[in-house]
Amino acid sequence: MPRKVTIFNLKLHDFRNYASVGLGLDGRNVVLTGANGAGKTNLMEAVSFLSPGRGLRRAAYGDVAREGAAGGFAVFAALDGMQGEVEIGTGTETGEEGQTRRLRVNGTPARSLDELLDHLRVLWLTPSMDGLFTGASSERRRFLDRLVLSLDPDHGRRVADFEKAMRGRNRLLSEPRPDPQWLDALERQMAELGVAMTLARRELVGLLSGIVEASRDEGPFPSAAMSLSGFLDDALEQPAYEIEETYAAVLRDGRYRDAAAGRTLDGPHRVDLLIRHREKDMDAARCSTGEQKALLVGLVLAHAGLVAGMTGYAPVLLLDEITAHLDEGRRAALFDRVDALGGQAFLTGTDRAMFEALGDRARFLTVANGTIAG
Rank of each mutant, 00 (worst) to 15 (best):
D179L: 01
I243S: 02
P176W: 00
D217P: 13
G262I: 09
R270N: 08
E291C: 14
R257P: 00
L186A: 04
P268V: 08
E213P: 08
K293I: 03
A224N: 11
E203R: 12
D253V: 05
G206E: 12
G267Q: 09
A196V: 06
V271M: 10
E291N: 10
I211V: 15
L228T: 06
G298F: 01
Q292W: 09
G262A: 10
F231G: 13
V205G: 03
M197E: 05
I243M: 03
L199A: 14
Q292L: 08
L183R: 02
A240D: 06
E244C: 12
G298R: 01
A224E: 07
G210V: 10
E203C: 07
A191D: 07
A259R: 14
G254N: 04
V195D: 10
D184Q: 09
L207E: 10
Y256D: 12
R177S: 14
V195I: 12
R270F: 11
E245G: 07
G194M: 10
A185F: 06
A185C: 04
D281A: 12
D184K: 04
G230N: 02
R276K: 05
D179P: 07
G290E: 09
E237R: 00
M226C: 07
T264D: 04
P222M: 03
L274V: 15
R177Y: 14
E244Y: 13
L251Y: 02
A294L: 14
A240C: 04
S288A: 05
L299V: 12
V297R: 01
P239H: 01
E213N: 13
Q189P: 00
L228C: 02
G267F: 13
R216K: 13
M226S: 02
D217H: 13
Y256K: 01
K280E: 13
E244R: 11
M282D: 01
H277M: 06
D281E: 13
I211W: 00
T198Q: 09
R177H: 14
P239D: 02
A214N: 03
G219V: 00
D272P: 11
L186M: 09
E279D: 14
M226E: 00
E192H: 15
R177I: 09
M226R: 02
K280D: 09
V205S: 04
R177V: 11
P176G: 01
D233I: 02
R286F: 12
P176A: 02
A259I: 03
S229H: 04
G262Y: 05
I211Y: 04
R202M: 14
D234C: 06
E242F: 12
H269M: 13
A249R: 14
D258M: 04
E244N: 07
M226I: 01
E192Y: 05
D184V: 03
R252V: 11
A285S: 15
D253A: 09
A214D: 07
Y247H: 07
E244A: 15
S209M: 00
A235E: 15
Q238Y: 08
